[in-house]
C-alpha cells in the first residue's frame, strides 16, 4: 500500500506545480500584452524597482513603467485576487450544499452584493472611517445579508432546508434582485452606463487603491476557510454523517456559508458581477486533484485566479481599441466549458 499512497501523493504535486506555473505565465502574459506591448525583460526590472523603491534603470522607457506599474500590475493582481476568491467561494458553496451547481452566483450572493454596493455607488456613499476597506467590507456585509435572506426564504419553503431548495430559491432571488438593479438603473439615467457596465463585471480603471483594499480582506477570509478544510470534507457526506463524526453541523454550515459569501462580497465590491469562474474552477480542480479540500481549496484559488486573469486579458485584447466586460468573457467561455466538464464527469461516473 505504501507505493500506492506515495504514487497518489506525487501526482498532485506535479499538477500543483503545473497549475502554479500556469498562473504565473498568465499573469506575465497579461502585464505584457495589450495595445502597448511591454518587453518581457522589463517586467521583473520594473516590478522589483517599485517594490524595493529603487530608481529605474535608464534603458526602461518611462511610458512602459507607467503602463506596467500604474495600469496593468494592479489590474492583473486584482483580477487574480477576485478569481481566486470566487473560485474558493464556489468550492465552499458546492461542498456545504452538496450540489455541483451551487455557487455564489447561482444562489444569489453576487446579485445581493451587487444590489447593496450598486445602490451605495448610485448615491456616491463613502466610508471615511473605513478608509480603503469601505467597499470590500460593505461587500462582505451585503454578501452575508444575501445568503441569510436566501436561506431564510428556503427554510420557510422547506423545513428540511435541502440544498436543492436553497439553490432554486437562490436562483429566483438572484433574478428578482437583477430586476431591481435594472429598475434602479433605468430610473437613474446619470449612472445608467456605469451601473450597466458594473453589472457585467469589469477590471477597467482599477488601480492600486482598489487592489490593496481587496487583497488583505480576501487573504484573511481565504486563510479562515483554509483552517476548516476537514469540516468541508466531512460535510460533503451530508448533515447526519457529519454530526455522527462529531461536527456541530448547524454552526459549521452557517460559518462556512458566511465566510464564502463574505469572500464573494469583498472580491466583487469594486468589479461587479462575474459569473462562471466560481462554478467552473472547482470542477476543473476536483477532476485533477480529487475531493480533499486541503488541496482543492488552494488549487481552486490558483485556478480561479488564472481563469480570471486570462479572461480579463481576452476582454482587453479581443477587440482592438475597445474593451469587453470581463463577465461577458467568463460567461461565453465558462458556460460551454462547464457543460463539457460537468456532463463528461457524470457520463464517466
Amino acid at each position: 500500500m505504501a507505493n500506492r499512497i506515495t504514487g497518489a501523493r506525487v501526482r498532485p504535486l506535479v499538477f500543483a506545480a503545473l497549475f502554479i506555473a500556469a498562473a504565473l505565465v498568465s499573469m506575465i502574459l497579461a502585464v505584457c500584452a495589450g495595445s502597448v506591448k511591454i518587453p518581457l525583460a522589463d517586467v521583473p526590472t520594473v516590478l522589483l524597482c517599485h517594490i524595493f523603491r529603487q530608481p529605474l534603470p535608464a534603458h526602461v522607457d518611462g511610458a512602459v513603467d507607467t503602463i506596467l506599474w500604474t495600469l496593468r500590475a494592479p489590474r492583473v493582481l486584482l483580477a487574480f485576487t477576485v478569481g481566486a476568491s470566487l473560485g474558493a467561494s464556489g468550492v465552499v458553496m458546492q461542498s456545504v450544499l452538496r450540489n455541483p451547481l451551487a455557487s455564489s452566483y447561482t444562489i444569489g450572493v453576487s446579485a445581493g452584493t451587487s444590489l447593496g454596493v450598486g445602490t451605495l455607488m448610485l448615491f456616491n456613499v463613502t466610508f471615511p472611517a473605513l478608509g480603503l476597506f469601505g467597499y470590500p467590507i460593505v461587500g462582505c456585509i451585503c454578501g452575508i445579508g444575501a445568503i441569510t435572506l436566501a436561506i431564510f426564504f428556503s427554510s420557510a419553503l422547506d423545513r428540511d432546508l435541502s440544498s436543492n431548495t436553497i439553490v432554486l430559491v437562490g436562483m429566483v432571488f438572484s433574478l428578482f434582485i437583477s430586476a431591481l438593479i435594472s429598475l434602479i438603473t433605468a430610473l437613474s439615467a446619470t449612472v445608467l452606463q456605469r451601473l450597466t457596465y458594473w453589472q457585467m463585471g469589469s477590471f477597467s480603471m482599477r488601480e492600486w487603491t482598489h487592489t490593496l483594499a481587496v487583497l488583505p480582506v480576501a487573504c484573511l477570509l481565504l486563510i479562515a476557510l483554509g483552517l476548516r478544510t476537514r469540516e468541508l470534507d466531512i460535510l460533503t457526506f451530508g448533515d447526519e454523517q457529519a454530526a455522527l463524526i462529531g461536527i456541530n453541523v448547524r454552526r459549521e454550515k452557517w460559518l462556512l456559508l458566511y465566510l464564502g459569501a463574505a469572500l464573494t462580497g469583498a472580491s466583487i465590491a469594486f468589479v461587479g458581477i462575474i459569473s462562471f469562474v466560481d462554478l467552473v474552477a472547482p470542477h476543473i480542480v476536483r477532476r485533477v486533484f480529487g475531493a480533499k479540500h486541503k488541496v482543492v481549496l488552494p488549487m481552486t484559488a490558483v485556478c480561479g485566479g488564472t481563469l480570471m486573469v486570462a479572461s480579463d486579458l481576452i476582454a482587453r485584447t479581443a477587440i482592438p481599441a475597445s474593451e469587453l466586460p470581463v463577465g461577458v468573457v467568463t460567461a461565453l467561455i465558462g458556460a460551454p466549458f462547464f457543460a463539457f466538464v460537468f456532463f463528461r464527469q457524470r457520463k464517466v461516473k
Binding site: R230, D233, T236, G238, G246, R286, A291
Partner: peptide, 29 residues
Amino acid sequence: RRDLAASISMMAQISEQWFDFSVLDTVMM
C-alpha cells in the same frame, strides 16, 4: 457532538456521493 462521537458511532450508508474521496481519506474522517 464531539464527545458523543467519541462514545457512539453509526455505520452510515452512502446513497449518493458526488465527491471523489479515497477510501483511506474517508476512513480518516
